[in-house]
Design a binder for these strands. Structure first.
Lengths: 224, 224
DNA sequence: CGCCTGTTTGACGACAGTCAAATTAGGTGG
DNA sequence: CCACCTAATTTGACTGTCGTCAAACAGGCG
């Protein structure tokens, strides 16, 4: 099972400054099972969330039913941002997840919090840009390999390990909606990678072994 | 020509607080012609920029030459963010552009500046998510129409106008690299929209008339 | 065991990509 | 102002990757 143990957890919540000592500035902790809704598109956007463990996905749905997962937020990431007064995306957990939530109004008063968020958003935007490259310019195979490598990076795998095992915290449909593909294409691509021994799909379909990380990286055409 | 008059300009730079009165906190102004580099991927990421007028594009290039424009930043937007100590994307102007740049070290000391940036990044991320939906789930035609409508929104067009004229501040190749298409597909799509009278491509190929905004919106499948 | 959900595989078609050539726009210098 | 040259755009013919529709298979749970 893909859960709190599988994903690297950022437990380093900064000590509050004296001026931030009001209770609410350290946030409210939320404990959610998998496939639970955090908020829906159109909800009043009064809170932001920091993922402490687990993972959530942000998605948008077009009127004709097409869905795109616009972002997956892992521990240390922020969700619940919005440009207007309602959320544009809907947010749901992929796995059992712990969130820390803050009122937007508190954000306006806490420099510590804002400072922390600016820091986090910088790398978060960089990751979104990575994904934009996948969606705009990569083939189905490259997208799938890139995702596997990205998930590997998030687990507690020694960076230089030659081989590893990666847990996919999502269904084939969710992978497809994240990668801008259909679930059939995701299946076929995984089957093909499996045949060519670039990955080994386990008995549990969500367990992927990568016998040769470097070879997968070449197929993925990752910059990183 | 697409320039400072065509794009809505945000001139409202906030008055500095007393503690922010050091000269550098109001930034350094940069005046650039079109198609000038602001920074390259791999450059030391010591500054962030706010677009005052014009537009810049952030792009990434894969080792085999494929390019993806990951973001177009319009007046009011921020660029120069990075997760590490070097820029991951390269940044160049699309049109004549005025930028205000700040040292990252100043960012660490100015609450006013950080507060302003958090605000801006929220809507900026929402726009990136819009674009993610285009890349992941929309057809070539929908992507082109969505871009035209987005550019319209940025110009000083009355929101309720039934028809309008939009300037494309970029070449067909740049449009293609932004929309995850080839330049041939962008051309064909525009020609086809032109034939079907959904747009009128002007003598200047970068001038697009939209006779019926509402009809274009239907074709674009915009949520917004 | 039977049902429901998630996954896999197959056959076929369509949208967009590739390669190539023609046409047009824009800039420079005579 | 015009001739020329280069870059940008447009169009065509063909190909390939991925989407669509459909059916079979596997796993979890009452």
């Amino acid at each position: 099972m893909f859960g709190q143990t599988a994903l690297a957890v950022d437990r380093s919540f900064p000590r509050m400054r004296a001026t931030d000592a009001r209770q609410s500035y350290s946030g409210t902790v939320l404990n959610l099972a998998k496939h639970r809704s955090v908020y829906l598109a159109g909800d009043d956007a009064d809170r932001i969330y920091e993922v402490e463990s687990g993972a959530v996905m942000l998605s948008r749905i077009l009127d004709d039913g097409r869905r795109q997962v616009v972002e997956i937020v892992f521990p240390g990431g922020i969700c619940g941002l919005s440009s207007g007064d309602v959320y544009e995306s809907c947010c749901e957990t992929l796995t059992p997840t712990v969130l820390r939530s803050f009122k937007k109004t508190d954000l306006a008063h806490s420099d510590t919090l804002r400072s922390r968020i600016v820091e986090k958003l910088q790398s978060q935007i960089a990751r979104i840009h990575d994904h934009t490259v996948s969606l705009g310019r990569k083939t189905a195979e490259e997208r799938v390999c890139t995702l596997i490598l990205r998930l590997r990076e998030l687990e507690n795998v020694r960076a230089d390990a030659k081989e590893c095992s990666v847990a996919l915290p999502m269904t084939r449909t969710e992978i497809a909606d994240y990668l801008g593909l259909t679930l059939e294409t995701v299946c076929r691509t995984l089957s093909d990678l499996n045949r060519r021994k670039l990955v080994q799909v386990g008995a549990k379909k969500s367990e992927i072994r990568v016998p040769n990380v470097e070879r997968l990286r070449q197929v993925a055409h990752c910059d990183a």
